[in-house]
């Protein structure tokens, strides 16, 4: 938006107002998200060994290479493809074959984002769409959770299975806390969930750390805090209600909050700016919907975990939510009515 005109000895720039600009930029936001994931990645590597890094790398390579091949020129610089790859990697089990992680990243970027026109245009969270695709395509590989081993450097599964071949499962596997709860009604101690001493996907453990990293983004206004807060409150409320009804059959709210991918999903996936509502009222509704669906699927559905589907379903509703929660402009009758009601209350 700038041009230059020569007047005498001066070279003047012409720009449209405003002539000042807030320091944030889209790539800065995106790379901050990537940076805030580094501690989470480190924790995953600490818990799951080199497999974690390999899987994250493969998923990110799938996402980034697809963006590079089919995306607009220079679109890698905005960092959104890297986020997609890393987040997808964090939702995968450590032992998953690398080719599967790669396919997930490629699918997420290709069909979750690029067909819609690239950055900012997609409807579904690309990382979760990739993950949902993998879940439907390779259910066995995606639900093989290797048990913790004493040897840190050992691979946690057949990471190096040849492309398109079935991985050979020769590791000892264990159920995730949610699986244990759902199919054997055995709750796990919430404290071990918080610090990450459990099995599961790379980003499903160490809830407290993810909360901290997400909190950093919220403080810098790089994510809308209303979404995670509303998800957590909804889940805690509904699970609390169930727990109060029958504490033997249903898990405690604390368990519900810290088990599975809820923290990662609420902090990093649901808050994806592109696929969440633009209005704050919409953010509350969006979060409530996710929380409600998580409880619905976890309690009454056939799957132990529903965070991914809950977020994808609410993603589909976002255009509708945006439309329903349009702000009432200054001075309009709608706004006057709202103010009147507030003053009557006061």
């Amino acid at each position: 938006m700038s041009e230059t005109s020569h007047v005498g000895d001066l070279q003047l720039q012409l720009r449209a107002s405003p002539h000042l600009k807030a320091p944030d930029s889209t790539p800065k936001i995106m790379w901050n998200v990537v940076g805030s994931l580094i501690p989470v990645i480190a924790a995953a590597t600490w818990f799951f060994g080199p497999s974690a890094l390999l899987v994250l790398l493969a998923a990110t390579a799938g996402a980034v290479l697809t963006e590079r091949a089919f995306g607009q020129r220079g679109s890698l610089g905005d960092g959104s493809a890297a986020i997609t790859g890393l987040l997808l990697g964090l939702t995968l089990p450590p032992g998953v074959p690398l080719w599967i992680a790669f396919v997930g990243g490629a699918f997420g970027i290709g069909f979750g984002k690029l067909v819609f026109g690239g950055l900012g245009q997609n409807v579904f969270n690309p990382a979760l769409l990739g993950r949902a695709f993998l879940q439907a395509a390779f259910p066995a590989a995606l639900t093989t959770w290797p048990a913790a081993t004493t040897e840190w450097a050992r691979l946690r599964g057949d990471n190096f299975a040849l492309p398109f071949t079935t991985p050979s499962v020769d590791v000892v596997t264990e159920a995730t806390p949610l699986g244990l709860m759902k199919f054997e009604a055995t709750p796990t101690d919430p404290w071990s969930l918080m610090i990450g001493a459990t099995g599961g996907s790379l980003g499903e453990t160490a809830g407290l750390l993810i909360l901290l990293c997400g909190g950093y983004l919220a403080l810098r206004n790089y994510l809308n805090w209303r979404i995670p807060v509303s998800i957590f409150v909804t889940v805690a409320l509904f699970q609390g209600l169930l727990f109060a009804v029958d504490s033997a059959r249903f898990a405690s709210p604390l368990f519900a909050l810290f088990s599975g991918g809820l923290i990662l999903g609420a902090m990093y996936m649901a808050t994806d700016m592109v696929t969440s509502p633009v209005t704050n009222a919409g953010a509350w509704i969006f979060g409530f919907g996710i929380g409600f669906l998580v409880i619905l699927i976890r309690t009454w559905g056939g799957l132990p975990e529903g965070v991914m589907y809950a977020i994808l379903l609410m993603n589909a509703l976002v255009p509708f939510i945006n439309r329903a929660t349009q702000p009432k402009p200054y001075g309009s009758p709608g706004r006057a009515a709202k103010r009147g009601a507030r003053e009557a209350e006061a």
Partner: peptide, 10 residues
């Protein structure tokens, strides 16, 4: 040894 893509028949 082919790993089927179950999603395709869903």
């Amino acid at each position: 040894s082919f790993e089927p893509w179950i999603i395709m028949i869903l």
